[in-house]
């Protein structure tokens, strides 16, 4: 029974004037805060606060077996949770299609950018590292795709890589440990379309009235994952403009991650 704080007309009227309810330009992000190492028990972790959206990603590393067709390659398992404490729009129970979509889109970007090279995750012939990324929504106010990708990328980038003690078959998680080999650093930019106007980083009120959404994930050089969502559509010209915008925006996001880790 979420009470919308703004009506559709109010948001649309503002957009026609090129304005947004929080005073932002159509193509700007909200203020972003990023903190790494927030969960010391996890091998890597990061909290992202984007406006009132708050997300937490944790990386755990374990030992598993390689896929039969990919000997010597490790596994990456990414999932997202829309925790019911984050909004009264989220319900307890099995993951919703929205949560699964969110987890899969973030996963694709990280995987395609080879952010963690799976070939570097082999231990021996029978064992490989399994890297779990869990992305938690703590408070929902729109744009979970970008906040989630940012949290996941920062958690991975800052994660310590455990060592395997083959003799005792033990994982050493503390002490003097290195980091994972990082390939492309992926971030994403999500755009919403309301009454024909396109905006970056829609907040919860804007998402409630959005006709279409597109998430564009890229690293420095290439597009790595995209997902168009909701019932509306984008023109090819819009797509081209937004791809350019995503490459532009990702520079700052990458800088932010690097600044919080080194």
């Amino acid at each position: 029974m979420k009470i919308r704080t703004v009506t559709e007309d109010f948001i649309k009227d503002l957009l026609m004037k090129g304005q947004r309810e929080d005073g932002r330009q159509p193509m700007s992000y909200r203020n972003i805060e990023l903190k790494t190492g927030v969960i010391p028990n996890a091998e890597g972790s990061a909290q992202v606060i984007m406006g009132n959206t708050k997300m937490l990603a944790g990386v755990k590393v374990g030992v598993g077996e390689p896929m039969p067709d990919k000997p010597g390659e490790g596994n990456l398992i990414t999932s997202a949770e829309l925790h019911p404490m984050a909004s009264d729009q989220f319900e307890s129970g099995p993951p919703s299609p929205e949560a699964i979509e969110l987890g899969r889109v973030i996963d694709r970007g990280i995987r395609a950018a080879d952010m963690i090279n799976s070939k570097s995750l082999g231990i021996d012939e029978e064992k490989v590292w399994e890297v779990f990324i869990d992305i938690y929504t703590l408070n929902y106010d729109g744009n979970l795709f970008d906040a989630g990708t940012l949290a996941a990328a920062a958690a991975l980038y800052s994660a310590r890589m455990p060592k395997y003690d083959a003799e005792n078959e033990e994982v050493i998680r503390e002490g003097n440990l290195g980091r994972f080999k990082i390939g492309g650093m992926v971030t994403s930019s999500t755009f919403g379309k309301i009454a024909g106007k396109v905006i970056l980083d829609p907040d919860g009120n804007e998402e409630a009235f959005m006709d279409a959404r597109i998430t564009i994930a890229n690293d420095e050089n290439y597009l790595r994952a995209m997902q168009k969502g909701l019932g509306g559509s984008f023109s090819q010209k819009e797509l081209e403009t937004l791809i350019d915008a995503s490459f532009q925006k990702s520079k700052d996001l990458r800088k932010l991650i690097i600044s919080k880790v080194e």
Partner: peptide, 17 residues
């Protein structure tokens, strides 16, 4: 009431969510 532990909450193995 819903008490749960995040899968990354432990120093040991990854937990089930």
């Amino acid at each position: 009431c819903r008490y749960t532990m995040a899968p990354f909450s432990s120093l040991e193995e990854h937990g089930r969510s």
